[in-house]
Amino acid sequence: MSRALVAAIGLASIAAAAAASAEPPAGAASCSGCHPASARVASPVPRLAGHDRAAIVRAMQEFRSGQRAGTVMDRIAKGFTDDEIQAIAAWFAAQK
């Protein structure tokens, strides 16, 4: 087998794995700046990994409408559409 073919197979398998692993939806990667990724961090800000999907959607929609009081989330939620909120909520809900 030629070197080029070996290289091509190696890359193809990496490409397949990348397609299978869910890239974070738009905006989701920023959340862990404040919402701890690790359960070991003590914070009044809730962890989102494994959080109930519907609860994340409801919170974001209520922050956005002003129905729920926030310190910064009211300002941040206004930057996201319903579709984006759904995608972010599904992504976090699927995590452990």
Partner: peptide
């Protein structure tokens, strides 16, 4: 809390 969270990450 933000500082603890981001530096932990």
């Amino acid at each position: 809390a933000w500082f603890r969270t981001i530096t932990a990450e």
